[in-house]
Write a protein that binds this DNA or RNA. Structure first.
Length: 286
DNA sequence: ACGGATTCCTGATGGC
DNA sequence: TGCCATCAGGAATCCG
């Protein structure tokens, strides 16, 4: 459930805590949390500096610097459903950590900071890459465009991969990271509600006007969610441990059986692309 | 070839 | 009160 707005919020709250710090220790408490294996991960990360924190789709990226200011590769963190990345200072104890990176102090009157990756359901991963190697990672290389920087023309093209309009259902395309990067179940449902399009509408049947409306809805919902620091259903927290507030603005996600906020009709739920999808049968059309 | 279904995980939840 | 089935879902993998 950490999707684009949540990862963006984590990146923004993590950056001032960890950027320019040196990784002085690497502790892996759960071997399945790191790629490509515990020893290789430590080798790729230990002694590097965190030069810059960034985001691509739902990936949190730590760009590293090696001695002499040379490119030190990249760590890509995928939180999947319940992953968290927290920056904690000395004295605080991380709960159920899978990986802990101990970072240098900025000055002598300040203690070290730890970057903690935890994840109760253990679906998330930290992938370490040597310089340039992330570009050979299949998942990364096939990521679709960023919804907040693409144009409406790009978006129309997304829905017609290879020039042929897709016969897939629109929600399946929105959730496909190779089509457009960063959207998950929450923001797909919210954007489709705002655009008045049913999640099971066949993409090829949506006209140009309809696609433009959907694109505007996607951007609007992502921008508002970032402004609210993401959505905290249960697990999501930013790098300082704070919850987001966008869950208070949900109009579709998780509202099955409740009245539509626009027309009062009972919201229905449907399984599309293996996900629970909630929509208003009156406001949203095929 | 393409799209849908299954699998991996654990904690919260609801019914009996 | 306690137990058990069910549900949550991102993406790799399997299947039709």
């Amino acid at each position: 459930m950490p999707e684009l707005p949540e990862i963006e919020t984590i990146a923004r709250t993590l950056a001032p805590e960890v950027e320019s710090r040196l990784i002085q220790a690497v502790d892996v408490f759960d071997a399945s949390a790191v790629e490509p294996g515990v020893d290789a991960f430590r080798e790729l990360v230990l002694g590097r500096r965190i030069a810059r924190v960034a985001r691509r789709g739902k990936l949190l990226l730590l760009h590293l610097q090696a001695a002499g200011g040379k490119d030190g590769g990249t760590v890509a963190v995928h939180l999947r459903m319940t992953g968290r990345v927290l920056a904690i200072s000395t004295g605080q104890e991380p709960k159920r950590p899978r990986v802990v990176l101990t970072l240098s102090a900025y000055s002598s009157d300040e203690g070290p900071v730890r970057l903690v990756f935890s994840d109760v359901r253990r679906f998330g991963r930290m992938h370490a890459f040597a310089p340039g190697d992330i570009n050979h990672w299949h998942f990364y290389q096939n990521l679709g465009p960023e919804p907040l920087t693409m144009t409406v023309q790009d978006f129309r093209a997304c829905l017609a991969p290879g020039g042929r309009p897709s016969r897939a259902r629109i929600k399946a395309l929105l959730l496909d990271q190779g089509v457009i990067a960063g959207i998950g179940n929450i923001y797909a449902d919210e954007a489709l509600f705002r655009a008045g399009i049913r999640p099971d509408a066949v993409a090829a049947t949506l006209g140009p006007g309809c696609r433009a409306v959907l694109f505007a809805a996607i951007q609007a919902v992502l921008i508002q969610a970032i402004a609210e620091n993401g959505s905290s259903i249960r697990d999501y927290r930013d790098a300082q441990g704070n919850a987001g507030a966008f869950q208070n603005f949900f109009q579709a996600y998780g509202r099955g059986g409740q009245g539509c906020l626009t027309c009062g009709t009972i919201m229905q739920s449907l399984r599309v692309a293996g996900r629970t999808s909630t929509f208003c049968p009156r406001c949203q059309t095929p």
